[in-house]
Design a protein around this nucleic acid. Structure first.
Length: 760
DNA sequence: CAAAATGTGGTTTTT
DNA sequence: CCACATTTTG
């Protein structure tokens, strides 16, 4: 115990040892937050608290795994084994499984992913006869998700005039009806989407106080990581489980709240003390990660935000100043990537190894030029994000089979595998079967097993095929309760013809597909082995495997471990640290994102994102921007990000235009870059993009429906009515800047934008 | 039923 | 420009 205290600073120790009542730990970037969480749990265990009584909630599997591993390393695997430490979703999924019946679900419910959701929404939109231009599945999915995250059920949604009006303004006034149907369909399929795992947990506790009481008693100590990212549903569940005087410890940093766009409520952390008035506030402000320059720069960035929990992150006396942040200007996105590559080559071996370096960008689309440049320069890299392993077609296909076997009502999975591998059951047949199911209001699986009973009009040959398909699934279902998950999966791959299908093709792509399926099978085997060993079970079933695989992401996969430069979005980098960080694409319109420009709340989130990016760096931080960027098939010219000017000039240097990137061969680093004082851009400069060859300003440009001049009133399909502010370029590169009523100013390529001239 | 043509839209996304 | 989704075509 004394040991713990010695390994922590005073604040950290206070956070660890304060266990009687609620506490709010504000953990500045690099202040040892994970350390506090793990030591706190270890401390509780050492104090004799039973692991069963501790609930630790995180946002990622990775964070949960790390926490468990580190605790196990301190107190040993025995004591840490039975901790309820996991993501909100996985812990709640387990509770919901146990209590499924209370909510009218079966314990083997399926967890639907976004793809499943989108596909259902598309069907509903079609059935309701709504036009899918306005009712795009992504848009509807987002609205429904936001509602669920705010604990708004379909009935409440329909009754909420404000919500309905907001939807109507966005041309999706029927969203509430879609939502209601969507929920019905999920229930029918015995399925929950990600948001339901939270929503239904809340409902469970709300409707069944005795169930809540049970979990309240059980979880005497609750810890929450990354509290600034909780949404309303998560907050309300925490409040259910932890009454005002409970031993609740939430840890987070309001300055690192970057998921507002997804429903995270920064207010949860800002107002914590109002909900838990007796909460002890502990601030961890000493940064152990970064140099003085980096911390100074980060502080100056975040100081431009209003509405923060006051704190000043500082650096220990003995920590070095380090190099100032270096701003690198490039001519184009390609040039930017090239300069970054040269820097990396230059410092390789001396200042940093590949795996200590990260390139962080605002959008995934920016990764391309870096991939190219790194390939040319022979720099090994690993890209995070992009499409996940579990989203690959072949992986999803196998999982779809497994899902159907465990939960035959899982309609999305059933439809997916109907004709894979090809068995001559075409679209028409599926449509007929689904129609029959809808008409009789029964699960699709019932119709599949006896099409004629439900009046599905299909011919003799097709009937045979459908019957064979049904028999195949039934044969699996019969044995699934008594067969290990791995054996089941292997049998599926072999007996359904998936294996044959994959082997029939010897293209490199098919080879990759086989490897992916192999990897999936291996992961199932590993899962089973872990279960047998850890839980001391005799058999790990598919129904044990599926709930957790649905909650896995690509980040949960290991790679080969050879040193590589990391390429990722800033969002993906949260919680990580690197010796050297390149924050790239610091341009107006890109970072901060153009859409945030007129919205102070979003601007603050963008700024926090920038703060997160810079604070990932331990020793060196580079900030780069390109004066021109290839985007949407056009060269776009932009100005440097206004964020650059917000950094206190003491902590940055701008690389002189003549300073060459260091050469690998040179014994000493190149000459110190010349300091440049960043000043705020005057309004005039801001409005004029810093272009190399500025496109000519134009007085008038003719388009299909008339002639555009400054001041011309126009209408755009998506953005509505607006007024032309300026015109430039000609031919295919003709552009207009238009101030839209409601959606702000936009630069449009006339080649693409279908504008209608309104007045004459 | 798959390949080819055409259309579309294009932040971030821990689960 | 490029990734994708949908529609058309052999």
């Amino acid at each position: 115990m004394n040991d713990f205290q010695k390994q922590l600073n005073a604040r950290q120790w206070e956070a660890v040892s304060y266990c009687s009542g609620p506490s709010l730990v504000i953990a500045g970037a690099g202040s040892g937050k994970t350390r506090v969480l793990t030591y706190k749990i270890a401390y509780l265990l050492e104090m004799g608290v039973s692991p069963f009584q501790i609930l630790a909630l995180t946002f990622t599997n990775k964070a949960a795994r790390e926490m468990r591993d580190r605790i196990a390393a301190i107190v040993g695997p025995e004591k840490s084994r039975h901790l309820a430490a996991g993501t909100f979703h996985s812990i709640f999924a387990r509770i919901l499984r146990r209590e499924a019946a209370a909510l009218g679900y079966d314990r083997d419910y399926t967890i639907y992913d976004e793809t499943d959701t989108r596909s259902i929404l598309k069907n509903i939109v079609r059935e309701l006869g709504l036009n899918d231009k306005d009712y795009k599945s992504s848009k509807i999915a987002h609205r429904i998700s936001m509602a669920k995250n705010s604990l708004i059920l379909p009935d409440a949604y329909s009754a909420d005039r404000e919500l309905i009006q907001r939807d109507q303004r966005a041309q999706v006034g029927e969203t509430h009806r879609i939502y209601a149907l969507y929920q019905r369909r999920l229930q029918q399929a015995n399925a929950m989407d990600f948001d339901d795992l939270l929503l239904n947990t809340y409902l469970l506790f709300y409707r069944f106080p005795e169930v809540l009481e049970h979990y309240r008693k059980r979880f005497a100590y609750i810890l929450v990581d990354e509290y600034q990212d909780t949404n309303t549903a998560q907050f309300r569940i925490i409040r259910q489980l932890a009454p005002p005087e409970a031993n609740l410890c939430v840890v987070g940093d309001d300055s690192q709240s970057i998921y507002g766009f997804r429903g995270a409520e920064i207010g949860n952390i800002l107002n914590f003390q109002q909900v838990y008035p007796t909460a002890r506030l502990i601030k961890l402000e000493q940064n152990y990660r970064s140099t003085r320059n980096i911390v100074g720069a980060a502080n100056s960035i975040i100081s431009h935000n209003q509405g923060r929990i006051p704190k000043e992150v500082y650096v220990a006396e003995e920590k070095e100043d380090g190099a100032p942040l270096q701003i690198i200007e490039a001519y184009s996105d390609k040039d930017e990537a090239l300069r970054v590559a040269r820097q990396i080559i230059g410092m390789r071996g001396r200042q940093a190894n590949y795996d200590e370096i990260a390139v962080l960008y605002r959008t995934n689309a920016q990764s391309r030029s870096f991939e190219e440049a790194f390939q040319n320069a022979n720099i090994p890299y690993r890209m995070y994000g992009g499409l996940s392993f579990y989203q690959r077609k072949e992986v999803k296909d196998v999982i779809a089979y497994l899902r159907c076997i465990v939960n035959p009502n899982d309609e999305e999975a059933l439809v997916r595998i109907f004709n894979y591998p090809a068995r001559g059951i075409g679209e028409t047949t599926v449509r007929k079967l689904r129609a029959a199911a809808a008409e009789h209001d029964v699960p699709l699986w019932d119709v599949v097993q006896a099409p004629l009973d439900f009046g599905a009009d299909i011919n003799r040959g097709t009937q045979t095929k459908v019957a064979a398909f049904a028999a195949l699934l039934q044969s699996f279902q019969k044995v699934v309760e008594a067969t290990g998950a791995y054996e089941m999966a292997v049998r599926v791959v072999e007996e359904t013809g998936i294996k044959r299908d994959l082997l029939s093709d010897d293209s490199p792509e098919a080879q990759a597909r086989r490897e992916n399926v192999d990897e999936l099978l291996n992961s199932i085997r590993t899962f089973e082995a872990d279960q047998l060993e850890e839980q001391g079970r005799e058999l790990a079933l598919l129904s044990d495997y599926l709930p957790q695989v649905a909650l896995l992401t690509d980040q949960d996969r290991r790679d080969d471990g050879s040193p590589k430069v990391s390429l990722m979005t800033i969002h993906a980098a949260k919680g990580l640290e690197f010796g050297v960080v390149f924050v790239v694409g610091l341009e107006e319109e890109l970072f901060p994102a153009a859409s945030a420009r007129y919205n102070p709340r979003e601007m603050e989130e963008e700024r926090r994102l920038f703060y997160v990016a810079v604070t990932r760096a331990e020793r060196l931080c580079f900030l780069t921007y390109a004066k021109a960027r290839w985007m949407y098939g056009q060269m776009q010219y932009g100005a440097p990000s206004p964020f650059l000017a917000e950094i206190d000039s003491r902590f940055v240097r701008k690389a002189s235009d003549f300073a060459r990137p260091e050469r690998a061969a040179s014994p000493k680093p190149a000459a110190q870059p010349t300091p440049v004082r960043l000043r705020r851009l005057s309004p005039l400069e801001q409005s004029r993009p810093a272009t190399i060859e500025q496109p000519r300003q134009r007085d008038a440009i003719a388009i299909g429906s008339g002639t555009l001049r400054v001041g011309t009133r126009v209408e755009h399909e998506r953005f509505g009515r607006g007024t032309v502010v300026s015109l430039e370029g000609s031919g295919i590169s003709a552009k207009a800047r238009i101030a839209f009523e409601g959606s702000g100013e936009k630069n449009l390529l006339l080649k693409f934008a279908k504008l209608k001239v309104l007045d004459v």
